[in-house]
Structures are given as C-alpha cells and as structure tokens.
Simulated assay, not measured.
Amino acid sequence: MGLCLKTFYCKKSKVVTLGKNIQISTLILRRVVLVANIKPSIILGYMSKAKIITTVDVAEVTPIYPPEGSEPGDVVIARGFPREPLPVLEPKARIYQTVSGLFKTNNESIVCYQRIPWEVEGKGFVNIYHFPNVLVR
C-alpha cells in the first residue's frame, strides 16, 4: 500500500493543521489515525507532517479513531497486504490519492482497504461508529 498508518494522540497544546472542516472538539484528548509518511507541507501557515484520516461525504467530517487500548505509534494494518511503507510519500507520485479511494467502511462501520478491515494488532479493528459504507480519506 505504501502508506504508514499509525495512531496518534492529540493534546490541547499540540498544533494540528487540517485542510477539512472538522470540529476541533473531536480531536482534543483523543487518539486518531494518521498517515504518518506524508511529505511535510504548509497548511494554513503551519507545517503539517501527517494527514488525519476522516470520513468523507457525510454531513459531519469525523476523524477515524483507533480501537480502545491503542497507544500512540501503534501501527494500523490490513491483513494480507505487506506493510512496506515508503519513507515519504511524494505528492507528484499521487500514491495517497490512488489508494485512499479504496478506503471505505463496511456494513459494520469498520474501516477497510479493499474490503479488508484495518486493525491494530492485538487491540481490535478501526471502527467509526454509525458510519457504514462511507468513504474515508
């Protein structure tokens, strides 16, 4: 897949840059799932070194939360796909844009890549409650 998906814990004092209309209250003191190997870029005047994965095409943009018990830095996997993240995703290669079109929740609101559930090994599946069959990016 080429992406480095990890969990992350946002603290009140942390600067988070977002290119989406998202409620900050959904991030404060919460663990979220990020693409950790995005090439750093300036968003709204701040250097952003990761991308928060959120729902797409729903009334309210919602971040994707890892399973309970996840710790910052835990790796998110899709079983059967080799975990070979690139050190940095180059924007011109459009790798993220290509594979993110295959991120979608299933009928049980579990986030999947090509219908294979995302999980944090030993801790459970990445689930976005109440959002079945939606795209995530």
Rank of each mutant, 00 (worst) to 15 (best):
Asn37Val: 07
Pro85Lys: 10
Ile116His: 12
Pro91His: 02
Leu29Gln: 14
Ile28Lys: 11
Arg31Thr: 11
Asn133Ser: 13
Asp74Phe: 04
Tyr9His: 14
Thr105Phe: 05
Ile24Asp: 12
Thr98Cys: 06
Ala93Cys: 05
Gln97Asp: 06
Asp57Val: 00
Pro67Ile: 06
Ser100Ala: 05
Lys20Tyr: 12
Gly80Ala: 07
Gly69Tyr: 03
Pro72Glu: 05
Asn107Gln: 13
Phe125Cys: 10
Val88Leu: 12
Arg94Gln: 05
Phe8Asp: 08
Thr17Ile: 03
Lys12Arg: 08
Val126Tyr: 01
Ala36Trp: 07
Val134His: 04
Val75Trp: 02
Ile42His: 09
Ile77Val: 15
Tyr65Ala: 11
Asp74Pro: 07
Leu135Ile: 00
Thr98Gln: 07
Ile53Gly: 14
Pro87Cys: 02
Thr55Ser: 15
Ile128Lys: 11
Ile22Thr: 06
Arg31Ser: 15
Ile64Tyr: 01
Ala93Lys: 11
Thr7His: 09
Glu60Asn: 08
Gly124His: 09
Lys51Trp: 03
Arg83Val: 13
Leu29Arg: 12
Pro63Cys: 11
Val56Trp: 03
Pro63Trp: 02
Val58Asp: 05
Lys12Asp: 13
Thr62Gly: 04
Gly80Trp: 11
Ile95Met: 03
Ile110Met: 09
Val33Cys: 11
Lys12Phe: 11
Val120Glu: 12
Pro40Cys: 02
Ala59Leu: 03
Thr55Glu: 10
Val136Met: 08
Val58Asn: 12
Ser48Asp: 08
Thr7Met: 10
Val35Gly: 06
Thr17Cys: 15
Thr105Glu: 08
Val126His: 13
Lys104Arg: 08
Arg79Asp: 06
Phe8Glu: 06
Gly2Pro: 05
Ala93Phe: 06
Lys14Ala: 10
Ile95Pro: 02
Pro40His: 01
Phe8Met: 08
Thr26Phe: 14
Ile95Ser: 01
Lys49Thr: 13
Gly122Trp: 09
Glu60Gly: 02
Ala59His: 04
Leu44Ile: 06
Ile77Trp: 00
Asn37Arg: 03
Asp57Leu: 00
Val99Ser: 12
Leu86Val: 06
Ile24Phe: 05
Glu71Ile: 08
Phe8Leu: 09
Asn106Met: 01
Gly69Gln: 04
Arg115Ala: 14
Glu68Pro: 12
Arg83Pro: 00
Cys112Ile: 01
Pro66Tyr: 04
Leu3Asn: 06
Ala50Gln: 00
Val76Lys: 08
Arg94Ser: 01
Ile53Tyr: 01
Asn133Pro: 03
Gly80Asn: 07
Ile64Val: 14
Ile116Cys: 10
Val111Gly: 13
Pro85Ser: 11
Pro63Met: 13
Ser48Val: 04
Ser25Lys: 15
Cys112Pro: 10
Thr62Met: 13
Phe131Cys: 14
Tyr96His: 10
Lys14Pro: 00
Ala78Pro: 04
Thr105Pro: 07
Arg94Met: 01
Glu84Leu: 14
Ile77Cys: 05
Thr62Ser: 11
Leu3His: 03
Ser25Tyr: 02
Thr55Trp: 00
Thr105Tyr: 04
Ile110Ser: 13
Ala93Ser: 12
Pro72Ala: 09
Trp118Thr: 07
Arg137Leu: 03
Pro82Leu: 13
